[in-house]
Design a protein around this nucleic acid. Structure first.
Ligand SMILES: [Zn+2]
Length: 475
DNA sequence: CGGTTTTGACCTGCGC
DNA sequence: GCGCAGGTCAAAACCG
């Protein structure tokens, strides 16, 4: 839409290293389940419509009418009707015009906002750099260097890596549940990640639910451009590396394994999972252990959830998609992309301790995947990320921004509001009536209900006794 | 009994 | 066109 600067497939990889502790089975109580699934979209749409409508109506009616009225007609009635009609038509035209204008403005605002966001990240990054050493940054570089397949493109530091406690999170998303969660969930250190946007463009539409989209040919002809865009976005993949002994990192979602394959250069098999939290959820993930270091689990997420997620899951999901979004669209706005990174940083920073920095790695999908963009979360890096608008700025400003960020992240309400607002903007800009972004849902969902424990209560998984669903490490 | 895992077969894209 | 590798399907097995 506004500026789809990047076409080429990109990929980002996020690596979180974590020490996974044992998930103490299922302690969490059954989740009250998210009552509100009201996606942010609804709201946003409303807003948009209302606004435009009003403006249009008020602005134009008069002039038009007056102009049209002059016509000469035999019958007064006729004349009246006709004039009225004409007036209405004119009005309509005006409205359309206005609408377009507004749209344009929206786009602008959107891009501006995005730019600001980028700026903010840059600032944060710089700040972190100052405060903390640059070891991490080295690591990041290492990673991308070592994995030859990776082509560094953008780097971002998603967060003020600071917090060290779960308190943050607890206060944020959950109170009592949080503690519970924490105790039961494994701790995973995660460090860097890369989102990798694959070339594939045959993603389904979330609306429809999961479609065996595997057959491009079968896929009915969809919208051309819009489709492409969406596909691009949807195709974003995020791979998360986590040091974990568990067979799977806990991300708060429920997954069903649908396949397993022996990857080529890796003795460890790669497992394929599909999100089962909602029937049609298109999200998939691949899980594989790093060949070099078996303790490292590489999880690659793909797609956006089409349903609300529990806070825990949200953090991950939104983060990934957010990162993807940001990287994928240099100047595109996205609620997820904008706000989630912070969120994530906050939530995960604690878990990002001085953990093992050095990971290099082969991108699991390094085979033919596109470029990979390492992202550092919660840690400083001097590998500056390039933002379209550049970034240096005074420290004071940086502090301010940081503070603001903190405040924002800390306040769920604000977050929600922001999410809604952005969502609305986006919705308008993209004109996509679909609910496809889990992001929106996430945001809203998150603040509204704080049920955090998404424990593996249920259904347990049959097979290996390893519950597929998991909780995010509260801490 | 419903949901999940397992696992071999099948399909598709890509490089040669 | 062929072979390889990755990804997905689907039937059978498994589990709570
Ligand atoms: Zn899902």
């Amino acid at each position: 839409m506004d500026t789809g600067s990047f076409d080429p497939p990109k990929s980002v990889e996020m690596d979180f290293f974590s020490n996974e502790k044992k998930k103490s089975s299922r302690g969490a109580a059954a989740e009250p389940d998210l009552g509100l699934k009201v996606p942010g979209l609804a709201i946003k749409k409303e807003d948009l419509t209302i606004n435009t409508g009003l403006q249009l109506l008020t602005a134009n009616t008069k002039s038009d009418q007056s102009t049209v009225d002059d016509g000469i007609y035999p019958n007064e009635e006729d004349k009246e009707e006709k004039s009225e009609l004409a007036a209405m038509q004119a009005e309509l035209g005006r409205m359309n015009e206005e609408n377009q204008k507004l749209r344009g403005m929206l786009n602008q605002v959107t891009s501006n906002y995005n730019a600001l966001q980028m700026h903010l990240f840059t600032l944060l990054q710089q700040r972190n750099q100052k405060n903390v050493g640059n070891q991490s940054s080295h690591e990041a570089v290492d990673e991308k260097m070592e994995s030859g397949a990776m082509v560094p493109r953008q780097f971002m530091d998603l967060g003020p890596a600071v917090a060290d406690h779960a308190t943050d999170e607890a206060s944020n998303s959950s109170t009592e549940g949080g503690s519970l969660d924490r105790s039961t969930s494994p701790t995973t250190n995660k460090e860097v990640a890369a989102i990798d946007n694959e070339r594939a463009a045959r993603e389904d539409s979330p609306d429809d639910g999961w479609i065996p989209n595997k057959n491009p040919k079968m896929a009915p002809p969809k919208g051309p451009e819009q489709q492409a865009q969406e596909a691009t976005m949807r195709k974003a993949r995020v791979s998360v590396r986590a040091r974990s002994e568990a067979p799977m990192i806990t991300d708060g979602c429920q997954w069903r394994k649908y396949g397993q394959k022996m990857a080529k250069g890796n003795p460890c098999p790669r497992a394929y999972y599909r999100c089962t939290m909602a029937t049609g959820c298109p999200v998939r993930k691949q899980v594989q252990r790093c060949a070099e270091d078996r303790s490292i689990l590489i999880t690659t997420y793909e797609g956006n959830h089409n349903h609300p997620l529990p806070p825990a899951a949200m953090a991950m999901a939104s983060t990934t998609s957010a990162a993807a979004t940001m990287l994928l669209s240099g100047s595109m706005s996205s609620s997820a992309g904008l706000m989630n990174p912070n969120f994530l940083a906050r939530r995960y920073c604690p878990a990002l301790p001085r953990g093992r920095p050095r990971f290099r790695g082969g991108n699991p999908s390094g085979d033919r995947a596109g470029a990979v963009q390492p992202i550092q979360i919660g840690r400083p890096s001097h590998v500056g990320r390039r933002s379209p608008h550049g970034g240096g700025s005074p420290a004071s400003l940086a502090d301010t921004v940081t503070a603001a960020t903190a405040a924002i992240t800390a306040d769920p309400n604000f977050t929600a509001a922001l999410a809604a607002a952005i969502a609305s903007i986006i919705g308008g800009a993209h004109q996509t009536g679909n609910n496809n972004n889990a992001n929106n849902n996430n945001a809203i969902n998150h603040n509204s209900n704080n049920n955090n424990n998404n424990n593996s209560t249920s259904s347990g998984s049959g097979g290996g006794g390893v519950p597929t669903n998991s909780n995010f490490p509260a801490t």
